[in-house]
């Protein structure tokens, strides 16, 4: 059994599974099509996908906007491979496994069942800045602390201070339990110092309020220096 997905503009609009011996009709009509896609570019009964003896066959059901395999219009039933580039009107049809392999943790989405009214998830294309922000790490340059290096990928808020609950535990004279936070904004990180006896310095200047961080910035407090890389 394989799972396929219909994709439009890099988003998965529909996911469906096909079993050996099954023929699924893809179309707009809720009743006539097994896989219903609510889009006017799709004919009521657009095409059908069959799995027989481990091979896939695609048939166009006289749709208005056509079905293409590797750029060629499908007329009668054609055998297809999972690696083929299949176009159903403006949608593309792809096995989900290849999408997941291609996009891993970046941008995939799902829609389940035939029910358009159900809550579904579509992950918008990651913004280029957001992707760049993923590669950041915080490195301990001098002073006592652990870990020596902290990956910021997937983290939205980082707590730095003396307390064991901190993501980066640093030690120094009169440091606060929580010395400062680094939090992720839409496309960058920002430094939020807390009121502490020991001041927090960013590139040599005292930080009193939330400040935007850039790659290469050095944060210093009580003999501990951290660098954002």
């Amino acid at each position: 059994m394989d799972e396929w997905a219909l994709i439009l503009n890099d988003r998965i609009i529909k996911r469906f599974r096909i079993k050996e011996g099954q023929t699924l009709t893809i179309g707009r009509d809720n009743k006539e099509a097994d896989v219903a896609v609510d889009n006017t570019a799709i004919s009521r009964r657009h095409c059908s996908l069959e799995l027989k003896g481990g091979n896939y066959y695609l048939t166009d059901l006289y749709s208005l906007n056509g079905t293409k395999v590797n750029g060629k219009k499908v007329v009668s039933a054609v055998p297809i491979k999972k690696t083929d580039f299949i176009e159903i009107s403006k949608f593309t049809l792809q096995p989900t496994e290849t999408i997941l392999a291609e996009q891993t943790a970046e941008s995939y989405a799902i829609s389940s069942n035939n029910d358009m009214d159900q809550t579904v998830f579509v992950n918008a294309k990651p913004k280029p800045q957001a992707r760049r922000a993923g590669g950041y790490r915080l490195k301990l340059i001098s002073g006592k602390g652990a870990p020596q290096q902290l990956e910021l990928a997937g983290k939205n808020s980082i707590k730095v201070g003396r307390d064991q609950s901190c993501d980066l535990v640093i030690s120094g004279f009169l440091l606060s339990k929580t010395q400062f936070f680094i939090t992720r904004k839409a496309s960058y990180f920002s430094l939020i110092p807390l009121g502490s006896i020991r001041k927090t310095y960013l590139n040599g200047k005292v930080v009193g309020k939330e400040t935007r961080l850039n790659r290469g910035d050095e944060i210093k407090t009580a003999g501990v220096t951290l660098k954002l890389e």
Partner: peptide, 19 residues
């Protein structure tokens, strides 16, 4: 939007933006 139920940030997928 095809439907108002399509959510863009959800638990179970990597967040494109922080919560």
């Amino acid at each position: 939007s095809p439907s108002r139920h399509v959510v863009t940030r959800v638990i179970g997928y990597p967040f494109p933006e922080p919560p």
